[in-house]
Design a protein around this nucleic acid. Structure first.
Lengths: 123, 123
DNA sequence: CGGTATCCAAGCGGATACTG
DNA sequence: CAGTATCCGCTTGGATACCG
C-alpha cells in the first residue's frame, strides 16, 4: 500500500472540498450517477477519455468518503451499481454550479473567438 | 517554456471549471483577495504552507484567465495588488460553497470522532 | 517586495494485460 | 462485467537561490 509523504493541509474548508472533489473525474462521476448512470460500464461509456482504472479508483475514493454507496448484485456476469448517499446529494448544488459556470465561461470564450474572426477585436 | 503533452479534455463544463479552479491554492486565493488581501505578501502570510513560487504561478494563471487583475505600483520597494474582475466575482458563490461545504463536512467528521470516544458509535 | 530560474520529489493518471 | 496489478510518463508543486 502506498503512503503519502506530504501531509495534506486541511486548514480551511476549501481544502477539504478539494480533497474530495478535486480528482479529474470525481465531480463528473457524481453528476453522472445523479443523472441515472449507476453502472460502471455506463459511466465508462459516458467518459471515454477516462481509463477504466482511474474511474475505478475515483469511485473507490468517493465511496471511502461516504459520498457514494456501492451495491454489488451477486449475479453472473457481475453487476454493480453506485448511488449517491446523503453526503453525495449535498454536493449536487456544488457540482451543478461547476457545470453551469464552466459552460457559461466556455461560451463566452467561444464568442470572443468569433468576434476575432469577424475582425471585431475590442480591448 | 513548457508545453503540455496531454491534451486537456474540455467536453463538459465541469472540466473547464476544474481547469481554472483546480489548482491547489486557486480557490483560496480568490477567497482571500475577495476578503481584502490584495498584496502578494499578505497572501503569502495567510497561506504559510504555500511556497512563494506556487502562489506566483497560480496568480499568474488566474490573471491569464481573466479572473483577477494585476495592478503594479511603480514605487520602491515594489508594490503589487491583485483584484477580482467580473469573471472572478462570478466565481465567488462557487468558492463560498466550497468553503461552507468543506467546513460542515469537517465538523461532521469531528463529531463522528467524538461519538466514538464516548462510545456512541452508531451505524 | 515581487518575481523568476533551477532542480527535483511526489503523485496523479494513462496504457495494457490479466483475474474472477 | 468489474476490478486490479504493473509500469511509467507527465504534471504539479515544494525548496532554494538569485535578480530587479
Amino acid at each position: 500500500m502506498y503512503e503519502k509523504k506530504i501531509p495534506k493541509d486541511f486548514s480551511c474548508g476549501i481544502s477539504i472540498t478539494l480533497e474530495i472533489m478535486g480528482g479529474k473525474w470525481k465531480p463528473c462521476l457524481i453528476d453522472s450517477i445523479n443523472k441515472g448512470m449507476h453502472r460502471p460500464s455506463e459511466l465508462a461509456k459516458h467518459h471515454p477519455n477516462a481509463s477504466k482504472r482511474v474511474l475505478s479508483l475515483q469511485l473507490k475514493e468517493l465511496e471511502a468518503y461516504g459520498v457514494i454507496r456501492k451495491v454489488i448484485h451477486p449475479v453472473l456476469p457481475p453487476k454493480v451499481e453506485y448511488f449517491l448517499t446523503e453526503v453525495g446529494e449535498s454536493l449536487l448544488p456544488l457540482v451543478d454550479m461547476m457545470e453551469n459556470w464552466g459552460s457559461e465561461f466556455m461560451s463566452e470564450f467561444n464568442n470572443r473567438q468569433e468576434n476575432i474572426h469577424v475582425g471585431v477585436t475590442k480591448m
